[in-house]
């Protein structure tokens, strides 16, 4: 009996509390930099596409919303011929970002993707590709290590040691 009256009184006191509501279109809520929103494809510091069309993101995607096809340019560098994300299927889980070996695919804190037509939610490569590096600056997959692709010579990568001269005995 008393607890019921107490409940009513405590609820009444909420009259003098501040409302928690964020008036959305006028004031935007804070979204952390690592918030999982719209997916973008980034470029490296030389403004070349990072994506090497390895298909790992498409394989990791639990709802199969990514589809792409690989091709090569004249120097043998792989890139995506088309890259398509169907955002009406995407669940923004971020698995593609985790799977990506080159930091090409990234999720950015942008959620405002409302459309009147469902077909408009299918983003092609030109919609996804941004002219920036996204969250990871100064990272270039080709400069780290690996084969000569015209970006760096053999053994000149940042994470790479000079090639060992197997014919010499010196350490």
């Amino acid at each position: 009996m008393f607890s019921i009256l107490q409940t009513i009184w405590l609820t009444f006191l909420h009259l003098f509390h501040k409302a928690e509501t964020v008036q959305y279109p006028e004031e935007k809520p804070y979204l952390a930099p690592r918030y999982r929103g719209r997916i973008v494809l980034t470029r490296d510091s030389d403004m070349n596409e990072r994506c090497v069309a390895c298909n790992l993101c498409a394989a990791a995607c639990p709802v199969d919303c990514i589809s792409l096809q690989a091709t090569e340019d004249e120097s043998g560098r792989r890139y995506a011929e088309f890259f398509r994300i169907n955002f009406s299927r995407c669940i923004f889980c971020g698995f593609c970002e985790e799977a990506c070996p080159t930091y090409a695919i990234q999720l950015i804190p942008d959620t405002e993707m409302g459309e009147y037509d469902r077909q408009n939610l299918v983003y092609e490569k030109e919609h996804l590709l941004i002219s920036g590096q996204g969250k990871y600056h100064n990272y270039n997959f080709y400069k780290q290590a690996g084969v000569d692709m015209g970006v760096k010579g053999k053994g000149e990568g940042e994470m790479e040691e000079k090639p060992i001269d197997v014919k010499s005995l010196m350490p």
Binding site: T11, F12, H14, L15, H17, K18, A19, E20
Partner: peptide, 8 residues
């Protein structure tokens, strides 16, 4: 109701 539930 919204006043008592800290809403607008």
């Amino acid at each position: 109701l919204s006043l008592w539930q800290d809403r607008l």
